[in-house]
Design a protein around this nucleic acid. Structure first.
Lengths: 252, 252
DNA sequence: ATTCATCGATTTGCTTGACAAATATTGAAA
DNA sequence: TTTCAATATTTGTCAAGCAAATCGATGAAT
């Protein structure tokens, strides 16, 4: 008989309770900042022990749906997850999936390209001088020869974050954060290996000018150019990785 | 003195351990399907009690990073989160944020519009007959007068899912899933209230034809048209909600 | 009267110890 | 050899209690 690989029939009670509370939050039975009963009281209500309740609560805490404080005025409170919380969480999940090869680099690059085109179209219409200044400051920083590779990469991220912020659309900001950050490790690798900073800076300057002049054609061209370069670098990185792996395989 | 509202200085031990294990997974120290030490062993290694370890593990389980089985060959195993897992999770978070008003409807609609334009541009180049057939089947289904509103909405979602799948880019699929699902409740409301199915079906047909003929201009036009309609409906929905709230306020 | 420190009450954080349930392995019986 | 039951291992749950944080109240000093 082949092994019966049905996932699990028995959902743990902790998981069930967590799901029940989560539903109460999403459907509005539990409102934001509302205090849940104490752990002891919840344990009594659900007829389980306190550690079981705690496991359930920790599952929700992991999703930033609740927060807890000790003390008399403490307890467990419903929390509206902030975009930062969810972005951070999502980002780490995506980063893991990327490192596990769930997503292909070229697929991510394509998505980022298209999404960044969307961003720049919106940004051209709405960019304020604040974002232009932030981007200019990052470009200026990047020209500093004394900058370490890490600092350069961080500045690169901030530059693109400013571009996204210029859309003034929180949903786009939320979405882009994922792909920008997911690409970060790979970009780092590319920059560390090939470190053609000047090329990157020129592209940033082109994007910035297009944004300042609200020149759509120029902006799209700048983004395209940037992505062609990124794609080339990826191809090199892939080739390099393939060679390394085949060497490793040959050695074994 | 104003209340000192610094979140928390003391990160709980369980959280720290969870983070430590998570890092071990992301940086490859722990590989997928690898077995973690038993809870008792982990408790010994981290010098904490087993329930504390369990709280840490449950945080990771909530993020689909590990799975557990009982028995001699059981234990805790590293798991590569599937796109389904993460999508599902993300979707519920975003849905909650939408219901809490973190995102504005117009912002979501704009993001969806732009992203769907991206999708259709990619889809036009890559759509296979499989996706065209799926979309055609949904359109056919939608013309059935006997369909309930719920079924119509579900079919609408499947139609757009097929459109996204036609991009053959998992990252785009992943991203779009969020906005499509996040919009779902609102769309339902709009359809339930104004139920102009025929208009929606005509738009679907236009999109489908453009995709079949690989006619980019027509496709973009179809998406634009669809979004103009959606925006109008949103404006009505907002107005309706505003009136309801002001009435409610007046009554109180 | 006001302010400050101290103490107690309350709630989460964590520990210890134990038992229950599931399940792969092992060994004995047919 | 096959089948079935005992066994060992590991997660799931329970119970009771102490520790730490923190808010409110009480009382003392200014």
């Amino acid at each position: 008989m082949a092994l019966n690989y049905e996932p699990v029939v028995t959902e743990s009670v902790a998981k069930q309770i967590a799901e029940q509370i989560r539903r109460a939050i999403t459907n509005g039975t539990l409102k934001v900042d509302e205090k849940l009963p104490t752990e002891a009281e919840l344990a009594r209500q659900f007829s389980v022990s306190r550690p079981t309740i705690r496991e359930a609560l920790k599952r929700l805490a992991a999703k930033s749906l609740i927060r807890s404080r000790r003390g008399p005025a403490g307890g467990t409170f419903v929390q509206a997850p902030s975009t930062e919380d969810v972005s951070q969480d999502l980002m780490s999940s995506v980063a893991l999936m990327v490192s596990l090869g769930v997503f292909d680099l070229t697929e991510i690059a394509e998505a980022r390209h298209e999404l960044e085109l969307v961003c720049i179209r919106l940004a051209i219409k709405r960019r304020s001088s604040a974002e232009l200044d932030r981007m200019a400051a990052e470009i200026k920083l990047q020209t500093d020869e004394a900058l370490t590779d890490e600092e350069f990469c961080a500045s690169d991220v901030r530059f693109h974050r400013a571009l996204v912020d210029a859309t003034h659309n929180p949903v786009m900001q939320f979405q882009m954060f994922t792909v920008i950050e997911a690409l970060q490790p790979v970009e780092n690798m590319v920059i560390f290996r090939f470190r053609e900073r000047q090329k990157i800076i020129e592209q940033h300057e082109k994007i910035w000018r297009a944004l300042r002049d609200q020149d759509l054609a120029e902006a799209e061209d700048a983004i395209d150019e940037q992505m062609v370069y990124l794609r080339e670098s990826f191809a090199q990185a892939k080739e390099w990785r393939r060679n390394r792996d085949s060497v490793k395989a040959a050695v074994q």
